[in-house]
């Protein structure tokens, strides 16, 4: 499996964020996106997911399911956590599992992976910022999807939680998954490449 981007052009509000971006990420590989604010890290993740359709160029998941879009084979963890404060931790996960047509079988495991089991019956409104982020990240373990698109996943996490996220990511990569992450922290994955937006997009794409 390989995620292939070819000649991607991204425009936001009539301004070109980046142009002619081509790269590929193979199974078991992680690509870390670095660069200053406004460089296009979030735009790239969103255009791979299909949320912000690219102005030009193609995104293809080689060896994936051709019947559905790349976005439907990807997890996108954005800045917002997609949590309902009125629902309990377990209810939040149960909803996303049902919405994505996944069984309830993995809910316990997903909570365990981000150390949320003890918090399961409590309303999400009561959680701290870091706990909410963990609940958002638990979706990664809840529903199996080959591509993970993570936008600053470690925001608000303590050291122990970052460690759990690393373990989750490592097992995903070991299973042949693909990760693209915009992050300033070195997550120390075995097969990790860095894509730096700091250099002009045209050079970086070469």
């Amino acid at each position: 499996m390989e995620l292939i981007l070819r000649d991607l052009v991204c425009e936001r509000g009539g301004r070109t964020v980046f142009a002619g971006l081509s790269l590929s990420v193979a199974a078991g590989e992680m690509l870390t996106l670095r660069g200053p604010n406004g460089a296009g890290k979030t735009s790239l993740l969103r255009s791979i997911a299909g949320l912000t359709p690219a102005a030009a160029g193609t995104v293809r998941l080689d060896g994936g399911d051709d019947g559905v879009s790349v976005g439907q084979q990807a997890h996108y963890i954005g800045h917002a956590n997609a949590i309902k404060p009125q629902l309990s931790v377990a209810e939040n996960l149960r909803f996303w599992a049902a919405f994505h047509g996944a069984g309830t079988a993995r809910i316990e495991a997903a909570m365990a992976a981000m150390d949320l089991t003890a918090l399961a019956p409590f309303d999400a409104a009561l959680l701290s910022a870091g706990q909410k982020r963990r609940l958002a990240l638990a979706r990664l373990a809840l529903i199996e999807r080959p591509v993970w698109l993570l936008d600053e996943p470690t925001v608000g996490l303590d050291t122990a939680s970052v460690g759990r996220l690393q373990a989750l990511m490592r097992s995903h990569l070991d299973g042949g998954g693909i990760i693209l992450a915009a992050t300033h922290i070195d997550l120390g994955m075995a097969r990790e490449r860095v894509f730096d937006f700091g250099t002009p997009a045209t050079e970086a794409a070469a």
């Binding site: 997911a49 954005g78 800045h79 949590i83 979706r139």
Partner: peptide
Amino acid sequence: ADFEDGSLEVMALGA
């Protein structure tokens, strides 16, 4: 609420 808390983005990537 779904727009502001990001739920809509996750739904847009659903099956």
